[in-house]
């Protein structure tokens, strides 16, 4: 057990310093972000309901009881909270400040949790996971904003994809709600409860979408070939049966009945051609987040 805890401490220790670095570095690039701020300043944006100031959300309301939470370590709590350099972050990414705040809270909780490691190792792992995720996402938002700031008017929006290094950063798997709703309250967890929880929709990720679409596109030719081949096979079989039956021509009022089978034929043909045209002509995959 002690060996496992030692390993955990050593695993997490570098992340803490890395996280502190990111938090402190956040407000730095005033020069890079100035142009966007200047542009937006000319046309102020409307208030967005989603970017509710983080301070308005009750930070420590856990299961109806106020949980003051353990006091964060002074060194982490005192990390500078410089104001954002421009207005852009609130409009483009309404969660940036919240992320940094959450990351700070989680960091504080993480430090306190280390003191009580033997009793709280499970909760700490979750907190560390959240901390890592929030810092990573905050970093991505910062990168996104810095990238946007260099471009003008419409273009920042068109080319502001996050750097490739974070594409597979693993944001798709949210922490399981069950973990958050059972067991002991992890340090700083009260503040994290405000985040929207994932239902089944938490699994609807871009990688799954791309996999599904790629599979379909990969078998498109085969699908078309099989459709035509099986259709020909069935039709040939029916024609052979008709030939072998050697039945006489029925009366006209009966003979016209099968015309109803022909009604949807153009629709099915158009459907077949259209489906394959869409799959052939369009690049339906999405770039990673």
């Amino acid at each position: 057990m002690l060996r496992e805890l030692d390993r955990l401490v050593s695993d997490l220790a570098p992340k803490r310093s890395e996280g502190s670095h990111v938090v402190e570095a956040a407000p730095a690039p005033a020069v890079a972000e100035a142009p966007v701020g200047a542009i937006l300043a000319r046309e102020p944006l409307e208030e967005v309901p989603l970017d509710e100031p983080p301070a308005t959300r009750p930070p420590t309301d856990v299961d109806g009881a106020r949980d003051p939470g353990p006091a964060p370590r002074a060194s982490l709590e005192d990390a500078p909270h410089a104001p954002p350099a421009v207005e852009t972050p609130y409009a483009v990414t309404p969660y940036l400040e919240e992320r940094l705040r959450l990351a700070n809270v989680a960091l504080g909780g993480f430090g306190a949790g280390l003191d009580d490691l033997d009793a709280r190792s499970a909760s700490l792992r979750e907190t560390a996971q959240t901390l890592e995720q929030e810092l990573r996402q905050a970093q991505r938002e910062l990168d996104f904003l810095r990238g946007s700031a260099r471009l003008e008017e419409e273009r920042p929006l068109a080319t502001a994809a996050p750097p490739r290094t974070f594409v597979d950063a693993g944001v798709e798997r949210p922490p399981s709600p069950r973990v958050w709703s059972t067991g002991r309250v992890a340090p700083g967890e009260g503040a994290l409860r405000g985040r929207p929880m994932a239902g089944a929709f938490g699994e609807y990720t871009t990688s799954r979408y791309n996999r599904t679409i790629s599979d379909l596109k990969a078998r498109r030719r085969r699908l078309a070939t099989y459709t035509v081949a099986f259709a020909a096979l069935i039709s040939t079989g029916l024609l052979i049966l008709t030939f072998l039956a050697r039945e006489p021509m029925p009366p006209l009022y009966v003979a016209i009945l099968p015309a109803v089978w022909m009604v949807p034929v153009p629709f099915f043909l158009a459907s077949f051609l259209g489906t394959h045209r869409v799959l052939r002509r369009n690049h339906l995959n999405l770039p990673g987040p």
Binding site: T227, F230, A231, A232, L233, I234, S235, T236, G237, L238, L239, T242, A245, E247, P248, M249, P250, V254, A255, L257, P258, W261, M262, P264, V265, F268, L269, S271, F272
Partner: peptide, 20 residues
């Protein structure tokens, strides 16, 4: 009803509709 030779005309597309 035994549709007989009428099926020569309709049978060509029947397979395609079923497979679709």
């Amino acid at each position: 009803l035994h549709l007989g030779p009428v099926l020569y005309a309709t049978g060509v597309f029947t397979g395609f509709i079923w497979v679709s």
